[in-house]
Amino acid sequence: MKTKTDAVLSAKSLKYFLQLIDSMSYTQASQILGITQPALTQQIKKIERAVGAPLFGQIGKKLYLTDAGTRMQTVANDLFNTVNTAVDEIQQNSDSKIGTISVGILESLESSVFEEFIIEFSKQYPDLKLNIWNSSRRELWNRLDKNEVDIVMLPLMGENISHWQSYNVRTLYEDELIYLSHHNLAGVQDEKQTITIADTLGHPLIQYPNDAYFAKKLASQYRMDNLIKPESDIYFSSPSQLMQFAEKTNYDTFVPKSVCMTHPDNKLNHYSLGDKLKIDTSIVFRNEKYQIPRIKNFIESFEKFLAKQSYFSRLEEKYKK
């Protein structure tokens, strides 16, 4: 016999409920979940009937959580955290050669060396299942906070992760944003010489969307030098797209050094800004994940892989002209 509790604690209903909170849009949430909007509405109504109160209110087109919705959000998060913690504790005693490892990578990150490692690792541990996916920065943090992913790989810039003490951060390599230009800036004759951020002004520029990580990094540097960040007419989230578009037009742009190295035939002038635009590319994971043998082995294997030959050395070897 089903009870109200059975209806409320349906894992599917609670998952849909939490996704709707993240999106605050039935349309976006249903697209992310891969279901129709009526199906999502039905699941939310199912919980509301069980608790006897509306979970969401609406002002105009904007959704908001009611008091009952806020309370149910806490309960749902606590429930999923309890289940995930229990699963992790059970898996801590499992064999390092079996199970599943989930890794999220920032979609704009140069990942060819990581892919090279994955090929080598999967051959060594054929019974391990690896879920590798690329996503936005926001989605990576969201899944990490919800314990839906084991490890994320991305550049860091003063992230405000709730409960930082619960996470472990390992820097993999130091990258930097390189200025790619059609011009000989400030008399610089050698690409190894540096320029200032002010030297980039006055030239047409294509950039990253304003909410992208690299865009925020650049905006911060312009502000620190008391300069106004140039506006752009064209934006790309992909560094490779920026580089290719800049080369075929009269636009300049900023691209990570790691991406520049994957395009050795690029004809633009490469300029460094010294320490101004350094980026630490890191992996981040929950502390308790390191107690799980297969995840600990994966992290240590990747670190040994890079210790044997550095990230940039591998890139240089792979993309020699």
Rank of each mutant, 00 (worst) to 15 (best):
K4D: 12
K4Y: 15
K15L: 14
Y16Q: 03
F17I: 06
Q19R: 13
Y26Q: 12
T27E: 10
Q28I: 05
G34Y: 12
T36F: 04
Q43A: 13
V51F: 11
Q58L: 04
G69M: 03
M72W: 10
Q73Y: 03
Q73D: 12
A86W: 05
I90F: 14
N93V: 01
S96T: 05
E107D: 14
E116T: 10
F117I: 00
S122Q: 07
Q124D: 11
P126E: 10
D127Y: 13
L128R: 02
W133R: 02
S136E: 09
R137F: 04
R137C: 02
R137Q: 09
W141H: 12
E148S: 01
E148C: 01
V149C: 08
I151A: 01
I151E: 02
L156Q: 05
G158V: 04
Q165L: 06
N168D: 13
S181M: 09
N184M: 05
L185W: 00
T196L: 07
I197N: 05
D199A: 06
T200P: 07
H203N: 14
P209N: 12
N210H: 14
N210P: 08
D211K: 10
I234L: 09
S238W: 10
F245K: 13
F245H: 09
E247Q: 12
D252R: 04
T253E: 06
S258K: 03
V284K: 01
K289Q: 15
Y290G: 06
R294V: 08
K296C: 10
I299A: 12
E303Q: 15
Y311E: 05
F312Y: 13
K320S: 02
